[in-house]
Design a protein around this nucleic acid. Structure first.
Length: 557
RNA sequence: UGACCCAUAGUGUAAUGGCAACACUACUGAUUUUGAUUCAGUCAUUUAUGGUUCGAAUCCAUAUGGGUCAACCA
């Protein structure tokens, strides 16, 4: 209830305001949005923002959202990407009303082109790409008309038909809109509508050898689907004039384009071209490498859909350039994981502890799966005379306010007993080999009558049945906030320590881990099973560390 | 050297002519069988200058700064 109120009270973003106004004035009874990926790469965190926006709008207001693949360039697009995109959108928690492809509309688009030709608003140009570039002018100089601009309607029709019929080689001719070569907006200087590409299309096969350009497909597809609010990023602002020109001259359903600023996140890149480079040049293991900002990478890393949706919600939408701190993404992640992750104990860099006064063969203790979740239940953990603790949880010479184990100092073993360090055992070279401790029998977790107060609680594992696991510790992929803004190649700034593979000794309960489980290795971080994990070699990914105030203090001093 | 877009704490978003708000980060402190979580507190004269107005982050003008536009990519 209180959450609902909070939602209602939250102010609208500029797109929601536009929509609310459109609904209020009766311009629309309901709205239609679309998420329009090109199937030439995997979706990344930037797309998640667009997905949440487009689908979120039609959850908030009456209407629906289509998934439409912008597949007008057969040489770069593949079915593999279509499938991954669908999987990612679903995983994020959204369902589209209609699944469409721009290629579904190739016949309509061809007819639209004919209509423009018939109205004297499009012509076939025989210029080469180089000639066209010269005639196009520059942002500060007007362009010049092509000599083919004045062809007759009949000739244009004939030539365009022959283009379609495959009578010309690639690149030899284009169909262009006849607008204004002097136009201040470069996109209005007779933009190319169709180009010849004798290429196999992932859906239409070899039916076509001419393919429409983005500007002659996107807005038209919007219009065919009666999309009311076509939302795209700011770099398309100059395209809007052409978008509107085509809709007006084609006399088709008037969809409208609105632009927002794409979200940038520091310490990563979100450009398909750059991500593709990271994959093909093997800087990462693949599109779903847990260091990648792709949806599939984040998924494998252990991010939850909820945390990503929450992140997109929190960063909002506006029109100004931005660089969002990846720390916010991690905050959203931790917030969700804290509530759902199963607590487990794993020791990474073990040091043996012998509990000298523990006489029993061992016992089974109990620990809550998640102290944040009353319904999370408890699990068994075995305890005995020999255990491992983290070697950096012990210091022979402890500084002030060190709450961990040190000679003569007491700590609690999580869900077990309070122990005191009596003796430090070393080898001939002076390296610590084990610690001899004594335990307080009355301090057993849950039935503590010792009245001893300790400041520190350590995680530990039972030496006898600890399971060795592999842990992949991931860190940010880049060393600088904005790799594309630095001198030289962005790849020069890749963090060489973005992956560290370490060993861990886990409590046996982790053998039951499933791919969808989320764990918190107590006092360490959040982890999940990796898809490469097998029964006799468990592999975990570190999703994100726990916040570490102690470490921060240490670094300051 | 044109056109267009943008400018509010370190970061991201609010305030729609009337007390600059929320979240993250950072810093203090409390609680804690995770140095986590949780809780409490601290951190801005809204890019600049001028104008309109009883009153401006908001409207106007100019400047400054950042971004976009010259693919047969999307």
């Amino acid at each position: 209830m209180s959450e609902e109120i909070k939602k209602e009270e939250r102010s609208l973003n500029f797109l929601e305001e536009i929509i609310e106004e459109d609904l209020k004035t009766g311009k629309y009874q309901s709205i239609v949005t679309r998420f329009p990926p090109e199937p030439n790469g995997y979706l990344h965190i930037g797309h998640a923002s667009s997905i949440c926006l487009n689908f979120g709008l039609t959850q908030k207001f009456p209407g629906y959202t289509n998934l439409r693949f912008d597949d007008t360039n057969p040489v770069t697009e593949e079915t593999e990407y279509v499938e991954s995109i669908k999987e990612d959108v679903r995983w994020l928690g959204f369902e589209w009303k209609n699944e469409r492809f721009a290629s579904d509309y190739f016949d309509n688009l061809y007819a639209f082109a004919l209509k423009l030709i018939n109205n004297g608003l499009a012509y076939v140009d025989d210029s080469t790409a180089e000639e066209m570039a010269v005639l196009k002018g520059t942002p500060t100089e007007p362009g010049k008309d092509s000599i083919y601009r004045t062809r007759s309607i009949e000739e244009n029709k004939d030539l365009f038909t022959k283009m379609k019929n495959g009578e010309f080689p690639d690149g030899s001719r284009t169909l262009r809109a006849k607008i204004d070569m002097q136009h201040i907006n470069m996109l209005m200087r007779d933009p190319i509508l169709y180009r010849i590409k004798h290429a196999h299309h992932h859906r239409t096969g070899d039916k076509w050898c001419i393919y429409p350009m983005y500007d002659f497909a996107h807005g038209q597809s919007d219009s065919i689907e009666e999309v009311t609010h076509s939302i795209c990023t700011m770099e398309f602002v100059p395209h809007r004039e052409l978008y509107d020109w085509l809709i007006k001259n084609l006399e088709i359903y008037p969809s409208h384009q609105y632009e927002f600023a794409r979200r940038n996140i520091n310490y990563t890149v979100t450009s398909k071209r750059k991500l593709l480079q990271l994959v093909t040049e093997k800087h990462v293991t693949g599109w779903d490498d847990p260091r990648m900002p792709t949806i599939s990478g984040l998924r494998r890393r252990g991010y939850t859909p909820k945390s990503i949706r929450d992140f997109c919600d929190r960063i909002g939408v506006a029109k100004r350039d931005n660089m969002v701190d990846v720390g916010l993404l991690e905050f959203c992640l931790r917030e969700d994981l804290n509530k759902i992750a199963l607590r487990r104990m794993v020791v990474f860099d073990p040091i043996k502890v012998i509990i000298t006064n523990y006489e029993s063969d061992g016992e089974v203790l109990h620990s809550e799966n998640n102290s944040e979740d009353e319904k999370g239940g408890i699990r068994d953990i075995s305890f005995s005379k020999e255990i491992y603790i983290e070697s950096n949880d012990f210091m022979e010479v402890a500084p002030k306010k060190y709450f961990r184990l040190a000679p003569g100092q007491m700590v609690r073993l999580k869900s077990a007993y309070i122990i005191k360090c009596d003796e430090v055992i070393k080898d001939a070279d002076g390296n610590i080999t084990e610690l001899h401790c004594s335990y307080i029998p009355e301090s057993k977790s849950g039935s503590d009558t010792s009245e001893i107060k300790v400041k520190g609680t350590l995680h530990w594992v039972n030496a006898a049945d600890a399971v060795e696991i592999e842990v992949r510790e991931y860190d940010r992929l880049f060393q600088v906030e904005d790799p594309t803004d630095e001198e030289g190649d962005f790849k020069d700034y890749i963090n060489p320590d973005s992956l560290k593979v370490v060993k861990g000794f886990a409590e046996p309960a982790l053998k039951e881990a499933k791919l969808d489980d989320r764990f918190q290795f107590i006092r360490k971080g959040y982890y999940c099973l990796d898809k490469e994990s097998v029964d006799d070699k468990l592999v975990f990914n570190r999703t994100v560390t726990l916040k570490d105030g102690w470490m921060k203090d240490q670094k300051k001093n």
